[in-house]
Design a protein around this nucleic acid. Structure first.
Lengths: 133, 133
DNA sequence: CGCATAGTTGCATTATAATGCAACTATGCA
DNA sequence: TGCATAGTTGCATTATAATGCAACTATGCG
């Protein structure tokens, strides 16, 4: 994931999807790192779907991933000038239908389940794991 | 072109193309407005191609267009908070291969052909008009 | 060891997007 | 009035991308 090799259009392409914007907005707004199951419970989207979107964000140099046991924590890559400005832009986006506000509430509630700053409970919305009903 | 109806992913999608990034970077960096033939001579891309890319940028709320005789002048829409931050990001993008620097030189040279602040000469690179050879 | 579960990925399907060609409209000028 | 030219767009082709399903790997815990 060397940002030096990533073309600008790849960065914009990575954010040219509503689900990936939801992920990036959550992380930009909270400054948090999150594992896949926390994002599944926050965005209410299938695990496999978010896993693939996270991969795209990683390949675009926007996210870094750190594995910790069964969990993989994702966070926005900091310190790259144009990316830091991109995060500023994400934080300034309008939220006319309060959809992001809803994601944010879910995310904060989900983060309350952490123990010692780590996710320990797994996917709470069981229907979103493995198969969607 | 009411930016209120435009979703964030449409903005990023509009910039998820190298040619459209070249256009947006030129306008963000120079703060200028430009007509199609000036962009054709600066980017050295076919007229019909740039015309379509300009339309996509307009539909995403990034560009406004003003017609003046045969010429249509395009400029970045100003005063929208998240768009202004996007332009900041564009101005911060790296240019490792100096491709943007080259576009900028061509653009500035082309702007020297203006008379009274208006484009009056038409497409200089004739091969890029109507048909590409 | 063996199960539960966090996370990943191949495949098929469907939708979207970029491009070149060529025909089109619109406008100024001789 | 007719031509040159700035700019737009329909069409066909090709490439790329999003999704659901299902099978897969990896790791902790009893």
């Amino acid at each position: 994931m060397h940002s030096i090799n990533i073309q600008p259009q790849e960065v914009f392409q990575a954010l040219a999807d509503p689900t990936r914007i939801r992920i990036a907005r959550l992380l930009a707004h909270t400054g948090e790192e999150a594992c896949l199951c926390e994002l599944v419970d926050s965005l209410m989207e299938p695990q496999y779907k978010l896993s693939r979107h996270l991969k795209i964000l990683r390949q675009a140099g926007l996210l870094s991933a750190v594995k910790d046991g069964r969990w993989v924590y994702h966070r926005l890559v900091q310190g790259v000038p144009h990316l830091d400005r991109l995060y500023d832009m994400l934080k300034t986006l309008p939220d006319s239908d309060n959809l992001f506000a809803n994601d944010l509430v879910n995310f904060r509630n989900r983060m309350c389940l952490r123990e010692g700053g780590r996710c320990r409970v797994g996917i709470q919305t069981k229907i979103l794991a493995v198969e969607g009903e």
